[in-house]
Amino acid sequence: MDILVCIKQVPETNEVEVDEKTGVLKRDGIDSKMNPYDLYAIETALQLKEEQGGRVTVLTMGPPQAEEIIREGFMMGADAGYILSDRRFAGADTLATGYTLASGVKKIGEFDLLICGMQTTDGDTAQVGPAIAEILQIPHVAYVNKIEGVTETNLTVQKDMADSIERVEVSFPALITVTKEVNQPRLPSFKRKLETRDWEIKMLTLDDFADRKEEHYGLKGSPTQVERIFPPESNVEKTTWEGSGEELAGLIYNKLKEMKFV
């Protein structure tokens, strides 16, 4: 079976902070890594390939430096990798990102199954996977936490519904997003690193797509706009209370009530 996994390069740390005085984002930790959930997506694909045969392709949208995570995908066992890279893709919200990735998928070929991590650690929206499925007009199942079985035509999975677990069967072509419960991702192999060192990573730009209308991509294709960014109001404001046991209990209680914990 042909499987495509969408992956993303994200900042190494979430500790991006705003300097309160200048309003400038501190740029510590701009080192990047593969979005952790995507490792589970790749592992899911590799295990399905091991059972059914086929190919695993990894796809990302990002700057040319995203090559690092494609190579990591190769080292885990992926067979091919693509980067969608074009300045005209910059400033994309989830709709434009979904549209770009879906355009890439259409260009690359036909797949039985698309797999995404349940969300990224930098955006945390969980929206791009379902958006891709919508554009490709295929069904999707989000928050898959177990693969139960696979045949040539369909996949049986369990999905996490917070209060319940659903067993669901989905027919190909389809898209799933996976949680961290789905498996334990393998480590990149040194042997694979040597084997895949010279593998070509294919770069695609807007000019390679069937739809070359710039207004569908990047900032121009994004209905949402960031009006402003600012530090969170509750930026470690410290409150200290002293007093009798009763007063303190009352203060805690009122605050918990205000915050809706009681």
Binding site: V236, T240, Y253
Partner: peptide, 28 residues
């Protein structure tokens, strides 16, 4: 975010009581 300087054995029993009772305490 909220530092409560006090003896847990003084504070907790009263807090638990208050949570059980519900309502709002005024003027604190």
């Amino acid at each position: 975010h909220y530092g409560i300087v006090g003896d847990l054995y003084e504070v907790l029993p009263r807090l638990i009581e208050q949570v059980k009772e519900g309502g709002t305490i005024d003027a604190l």
